[in-house]
Design a protein around this nucleic acid. Sequence first.
DNA 1: TTGTACGCGTTATCAC
DNA 2: GTGATAACGCGTACAA
Lengths: 335, 335
Amino acid sequence: MAVIKDVAKLAGVSVGTVSKYLNTPELLREDKREAVEDAIQKLNYRPNLFARNLRVQDSKTIAVIAQEIRNPFHAALFNTIRKEAMKYNYSVVLYSINDVNGNIDTLFESLPLHYFSGLVLCYFHDMEQSIAFAKRHDKVPMVIMSNSDRYFNEYDSAKIIHADFTLGIEKVCEYLISRGNKNIAYIGCKTKDTAHEPKLKGFLMTMEKYGLKPHSITRLEKEYTMETGYESAGQILKCGTLPDAILSDTDIMAVGALNCLRDHNIKVPDDLMLASCDNIEFARYCCPRLTTVNVPIEAMSIKAVELLVAQMEDKPHLSTGTSFELELIIRESTK
Amino acid sequence: MAVIKDVAKLAGVSVGTVSKYLNTPELLREDKREAVEDAIQKLNYRPNLFARNLRVQDSKTIAVIAQEIRNPFHAALFNTIRKEAMKYNYSVVLYSINDVNGNIDTLFESLPLHYFSGLVLCYFHDMEQSIAFAKRHDKVPMVIMSNSDRYFNEYDSAKIIHADFTLGIEKVCEYLISRGNKNIAYIGCKTKDTAHEPKLKGFLMTMEKYGLKPHSITRLEKEYTMETGYESAGQILKCGTLPDAILSDTDIMAVGALNCLRDHNIKVPDDLMLASCDNIEFARYCCPRLTTVNVPIEAMSIKAVELLVAQMEDKPHLSTGTSFELELIIRESTK
DNA sequence: TTGTACGCGTTATCAC
DNA sequence: GTGATAACGCGTACAA
């Protein structure tokens, strides 16, 4: 493996010159530049990243903290972040909150936090903890994805991306009501900060606005999976009286609920309407196709990486976070 | 940030002793050990990984090369590998073949190959290329996931994990035939090495064994997505005569196909049976539930990491790869 | 514009 | 069992 010294010798220059070529080639005289270029080619030289990292104390690596990569919503989020980061020449490692029972701090046991050039926090499930973590490490370049304007307005605007899930759920809930449903059941998972759970809040506010009482609110203390959705729907059926509609806070749960209803011979949308939130791909492919709320994952991820890069390259205020709007998508499950 | 020198000073020992404490504490006398421990505690010292990496020329990082993380099958694979690797104190970075139009070599442009402690190749789509890449870099610790005994038998047994997809497809195809289907259509995606595509091979061999002719073979040059499945089924319907059954080489495509059939008012399984391979979670939650072939992703990933760690820690022959059997799962789509 | 020399924080190799 | 010291390969003052 050729090192910078070999290149210098072959090119007939000093190591300093080669280093300059690598970092600020425009500051080199043309003949030297060509000589170095040739030598690098001939030796197939690649700078040693270990040495470089030590010297500049920077790994060019971003940690993405996500809930669970097998969840299609989070997979899409992670994937776009990863792709975007690579455009800026950062690599990405994934941490999953599910690995550590929801405690962010235990995540960095093997790899210390300062190893990373930056962090993206996509842990909607416990925003309170995410924000606390961010505040505790405010020197570390970091972007937080938020689902609540509570944090969007309160926290550093150069570090936060926001999607208004409350508004999103309001839209879909209003739509359900406009379709004649009065007796609506809500399903979701229990989050740490129930009092400010933005989706639940959107549901409750909308129901109240129309003077309606929820049929039921089911929020199991489980992971967001189809199985949990199945189980949640099962709970609703046990109530005795069927709701007019079920509003699920995620597509993945809605798909599970759909299965449960089918097993009980309840037809969607004829016997009961179903709508949810996220617009994962499967929402278009299940049967019936789901009415849901689109989340602009791609745009959000791109913006997140932009913010993070700005921080990492020390121009934090070139860019500030944005709030993204969610859009209602009407499909068969409410037809 | 405290460094090793600070610890040494506070503990009243030399840096060498502290280093020894970090790496082989059992070789230290008890009083010194305690002194160092105390100092580390007091200073909240964390070894600098950049320096450590440089010294030992090892990043403790594994690269996983996967097709596409949004595909649930690959997400599950990646996730288990990541979790396993973390148990051994390695971190994982994901590379996606879809980012680089299927060319593995362009993957390591920013990060040189020798930066990684090891590699896991999960690129079933072009085994020929995967194996060629592995052979070209036979000094790099690497594990290849293979879908064909062609490679399993031919390549270094300490470096390869194998699932017999040919046999898996044979099982499901035989089952379709046993259910009275004679006129079977096959859908999949075009792979680079069609002549040895293990799933297609399993299908063709089984059909021949029973003296049957395929209704059609549709293999679009697209990615494995539900949309591609939808389109593939559309092609079959254009043929005019409906097959008795469709065998899809992946669940994800089958789900898409299911949607297309539904849009054309063709009932599964009444008008036409459908079966596939992978046993992703959706296969249990779509409507009808899919008959498919289970792939023991978890066991395979665990074994893969075991093999890789053995290579990385220089005991390559403590462990050899295994072939995993695939199991038929019968559900509604063939009832 | 280019070269020299030093430092980044760790581990490994020696003497002792 | 412990301490001093030389690498590891790169970036960057500072001198020329």
